[in-house]
Design a protein around this nucleic acid. Sequence first.
RNA 1: GGCGGCAUAGCCAAGUGGCAAGGCAGCGGUCUGCAAAACCGUUAUUCACCGGUUCAAAUCCGGUUGCCGCCUCCA
Length: 485
Amino acid sequence: MNLSIYNTFTKRKEEFKPIQEGEVKMYVCGVTVYDLCHIGHARAAIVFDVIYRYLRYLGYKVTYVRNFTDVDDKIIKRAHEEGVSPEEIAERYIREFYKDMNPLNIEPPTCEPKATMHIAEMIDMIKKLIEKGYAYQSDGDVFFSVRSFSEYGGLSGKNTDELIAGARIEINEKKNDPLDFALWKASKSGEPWWESPWGKGRPGWHIECSAMGQKYLGQSFDIHGGGKDLIFPHHENEIAQSCAATGNPPVRYWVHNGFVNINKEKMSKSLGNFFTIRDMVKRFNPEVIRFFLLSSHYRSPIDFSDQNLNEARINLDRFYDLFLFYDMVAKENPTLPPLTKGKDEEILEGGSDDELMQRFEEAMNDDFNTAQVIGHLNSELHHLNSKRGGEVRDEFLREITTLKNIGGVLGLFGQDPVEYFEKEKSIGIASLGISEEEVLRLIDEREKARREKRWSDADRIRNELSLKGIILEDTPRGTKWKIKG
RNA sequence: GGCGGCAUAGCCAAGUGGCAAGGCAGCGGUCUGCAAAACCGUUAUUCACCGGUUCAAAUCCGGUUGCCGCCUCCA
């Protein structure tokens, strides 16, 4: 079975055929850098990160471009509020972006262009649009004439007459038609500006993606992604501009991820119901957030709540518990190779459980169904756990390696199991009102009691810890502790 | 008002024409000093509701209800 992708433009799944055989060119709208990223941004980044990884897994040479919008009203506003330059705001939040995204195991795209570094390309494109009669100048601004582009509305399913009826369009005297949108804005005082044939000004929002996409990926490229909220007007306008300028449809497959919701409502800055990545990472291992976000299909909405994240955490723990088990066995048996070899994108040798790989590919080929993949991984986990009692040999090794390899394509299972659980404990214990030293002391005390078969003393300590939210596990290799689920 | 999406067990979530994946929680058992973990077994005659097409529908068509998104910046 071949890869098929749901295309927002045609509203159906289509078999994926790249323009150039063996190569994929993909552009994804990044963030506007004026504030910290929230979980919604994390979802978009993770979804396209997985798509990027999987396309490469399939053997494509992928050029992945993800931009930063570093010139924009909100950046300017923020700069004024803080009394610093817009560049400083943009630079700061680009740094913060990486601080948040790196722990989520997002791979760097091939190229991360900034809008302000491509003003010349945007001006060229705007000039071309004016020459061709698709755009006009008006008092230092330049607008795209929506009605001059007859295919307008193809992506979002809107038609121009209905848009006017919507009546939520801002009245702008400079526009010939309320539907028209800005390609270039004359700068007011205190705003950043660049010289242009129309005077000092700055670019409109939509033109940057058209210009940068074309520069790095060509007039027509394979995949363009972003959040569902970008379908209209951003991507609709992008199509209009690019198509009008070059005569070619810019994109073959439009891919849009669903929102992260809070109580069924979209998480967003304007509603104020957002959680920053930074705050969540204090309470959950970043991999738990990643695992959780991949446990639903990328186009579905996903409800973000403590309970849901905690369930994801418990499930992910089970995988790491298996890896921990293997590592311990491997340590005692030098003929077994270590599972953790390095970066998670490396495909480990010996991972060739064909049936599991086949199920993995089937699920991913069906519009990147990571939820189903996680289901398969759970079945395999179950299967491997059932063999824990027996001898760990070739077959076990082959299967667990396959499990790890598949996880790697999703950007999961890359941590050292010991560190994973240490991290989980250090995150969890902060809210429990007991120190790690105290826990270890009590475990020691209980060990002593157990050796002397003073069972009621041992049980009393265990209960005490349980009330604090700590669970004990007695294993042949000593007593482990963890945070209650 | 226009356009679009969703509704599957207590909760989360796959499945889009051929006997309803998986996770969490629950229950019974194995193991254990007792637990925990792990394992084995079990938990939806049914997929919001009504009608239709079909040998066959959670899946297709029509309608109803409810929730959500876009139409303004937004991943």
